[in-house]
Nucleic acid binder design. Structure first.
Lengths: 97, 97
DNA sequence: TTACAATGTCATCGAACGGTGACAAATGGA
DNA sequence: TCCATTTGTCACCGTTCGATGACATTGTAA
């Protein structure tokens, strides 16, 4: 499954927590955060700290990985497969602003 | 590649930024954050906001995905493949604390 | 070396963090 | 239904966030 938003992340965490037969308090203790924090994160808290998120996923045995470039049609910020000469020239132009 | 720590994340971001031929200021503008924030994140800032991290990865065309259970030997918090009856019973026991 | 771009670092500031303690609402079993 | 567990939500508080502006350091091409 692919993760693009904090809501995706919250859904994953809630799903895995339930599959592990843990309540929010159990998971909170395992991770070392408050029960309220787990609750908010599962609902998609946008400003949660990345390291706590990583600890939470780790506690649930969830593996995050990165693929190569995003396939063209899949994401909104598709990457050009070839070198973008124009942008390189643009970057090389002297007055950046 | 697998991501387990904020340092992994920072390394990915720096690597992809350079491959995209962007400097920190370019990426910052694309994501909508300050150049300093990009700088700190690339060095493994542990308390960065998850939503900004996701926006950054998206801007770089980096796809994050989740696999099933972590393979036994790979991670420190390995998940039992079978149902853990003991922990279920423990959870079911009346006085939680 | 000189000069400029890129990166690293600092202080300041308003805003939001996460923890705690408490209570209400929802859920589920007897 | 009753009752306990779980989840959702609130106010308070000390800490840290990320933006800004400035300056130092490093990298690199002329």
């Amino acid at each position: 499954m692919q993760i693009r938003t904090v809501k995706d992340l919250g859904a994953i965490i809630r799903d895995r927590r339930k599959k592990a037969d843990l309540d929010q308090a159990d998971l909170a203790q395992k991770v070392g955060v408050s029960r309220q924090w787990i609750n908010e994160v599962e609902k998609g808290k946008p400003r949660a700290e990345i390291s706590l998120i990583l600890k939470t996923l780790d506690a649930l045995g969830v593996v995050i990985n990165i693929d190569g470039e995003r396939p063209d049609k899949t994401g909104k910020a598709a990457q050009p497969k070839t070198v973008d000469i124009d942008s390189i020239i643009e970057n090389a132009r002297r007055p950046k602003q």
